[in-house]
Nucleic acid binder design. Sequence first.
DNA 1: CTAGGGTTAG
Length: 762
Amino acid sequence: MAFLPSVAVTRTPKSESEFRKYSTSFLPSEKSPSVSYQRSTQLDGVSEARCLDFREALSLIREGTKVESAFYVPILQECIDKKLVSDAQKIHAHIVKTGAHKDAFLMTFLVNVYAKCGTMETARKVFDELPRRNVVSWTTLMTGYVHDSKPELAVQVFREMLEAGAYPTNYTLGTALSASSDLYSKELGKQIHGYSIKYRIEFDASIGNSLCSLYSKCGSLECAVKAFRRIRDKNVISWTTVISAWGDNGEAATGLQFFVEMLSECVEPNEFTLTSALSLCCVMQSLDIGTQIHSLTIKLGFESNLPIKNSIMYLYLKCGWIHEAKKLFDEMESISLVTWNAMIAGHARMMDFTKDDLAAHQCGTEALSIFLKLNRSGMKPDLFTFSSVLSVCSSLVALEQGEQVHAQTIKTGFLSDVVVGTALVNMYNKCGSIERASKAFVEMSTRTLISWTSMITGYAQNGQPQQALLLFEDMRLAGVRPNKITFVGVLSACSHAGMVDEALDYFQMMKNEYKITPVMDHYACLIDMFVRLGRLDEAFDFIKEMDLEPNEFIWSILIAGCRSQGKLELGFYAAEQLLKLKPKDTETYNLLLNMYLSAGKWKEVSRVRKMMKEVKLGRLKDWTWISIKDKIYSFKRKARSHAQSGEMYELLGNLHEKAKSFGYEWEESLELTDEEEDADEEKASSSIVYHSEKLAIAFGLLNTSNAVPIRVTKSISMCRDCHNFIRVISLLSAREIIIRDSKRLHKFINGHCSCGDFGTLI
DNA sequence: CTAGGGTTAG
């Protein structure tokens, strides 16, 4: 049923009761329609005007030639397609001048033009001046508000419309449902569902599609699928919607099954279906299916479709096919902002995904250079760009670049976006700049769960556990419901502060009050806490009691504790467990080795060394990066190839001497070797071997002005010796030194570290 | 007048 007849709707008792059940507070009660409208047929027979060249037609209008109303329509359509607001305004003026504005149909179309071009104020003005309103004009206005992300205004218009006594059509209800789903309001959606039952259009595809996407967005996957099943004539959109619904609710595999089902029912996918299916492959990291869909897109003639190309490129990036992705990118004859954003976000994602830290770091720098190219290309970055770039800056601890992006977000107004704001807070947190993070957090006009969580975690990581817990209470007072990630932050704060009772209380609160099942990270925080306090037996009891199989991180924490407490027996047991999990891992062996080194068990040391040779381990790559101004410098252990090497080594030598008077003692640790190291260099180097972070910090001290904090990232976990040394350096040089290693954030101020001096695993 | 591609917290 395309349009409702303009006669009163007959009601069946069943739908009436169902309608009553749904109708509560949001919407006015139904009035009988006072005016009825006929669908205008003026559009028919206009198509000849399309034959006219757009510019030619426009010049006719400029000259002031009087034309028929129908003449405007194709030109206005062109304005919609190309978002030509100023041309639309000229045509509008012409319409008014020639008196054609008395034509309600034409003016409704004009509302559509302004709405589609994102100029809602004008659209509303034209609408208010309409000689007659019909359901299409109401619906058009609603659609405009939905597009302009003002769903509450769309609902308001819907209400006005009902109050005016106009009948909604399937399109109207579909649009109203989109508005409810933008508002995440299942309640409102249900009421509108009620209207559709009342008007007996509930089985209509446009209603069913919108319902399906509403329920999906509200997290009710089951309802979404039910809504899909109830659609009588499922169209491509129905299928696309239900496929995305599975994907959006974490069931990507089932989504792909539906895609296959759709193909087997001979429904031809369109560009939307294909992009959705591709994004499911993205989630599943399935290059296998992804490449098949890639060929399908070509078969169906979408090879030059930009959204699809963007999706494929993004898929390849996320699956680690950087070169394929780059090839696609280079071959694209036209690219959009989404293309740029996909490239940046894809590289950002690769950072988390790559096992190799050096490669991950290169991905990050590549992402930043793509961002630079985007800026030079003349295209304007948007909120998606800024969110991704800020997250790259966080991972790279590239504060100065982050600050520049911050400035750009202010200038462009995108800082007001909650996601960008959150990304900014996170960037300052990850760079160890807690004051600026909290300033950015306070200045946000709205905060999501993620914003709160980021800030809570930031306080915990930056060594301000009390602040973290206070903020957590603020968050609960603000009525925001914490999730499991929030509790990871809370528990790690307790762990840092050594607040055992509070930690256990929060752990109970999480399970009982919030019904969150603990995950490994929660246990890791608690075990870490007991280990920090030297209560190894309790830590071990906890490991035995938990429902999950302990992972490598848990065992590593325990081993590190055993090392500092000299509890070799337990340490060895933990190491055995760790070796079972990661039999060929260099870091595992280094943990074990350092434990025996610290205890002076030389026989064991040589035994472990022998074992390491036998299993032919890959070698640990010790890299540290420092970002100064716009450049990122990298250092590896013992490197002497740097232009300033001489000065750096001299400085380090002096600092080592000075540090001794502050109680620092050289401690042998960590058998670090590097693949590219050659034997000559080994012989040439002095007896002291500097790990990469020492070199990077020396470089930082030489190349930044006094009192400027030094920020570096490191590919592996810091060793205890470097940790002790840098603690003293922060005191000696009166500098804040921030090191993000593979496991933790270390913020050294005046001889103390935010990790509570217990963050070194190897 | 309905569907789409790219974003933030462990």
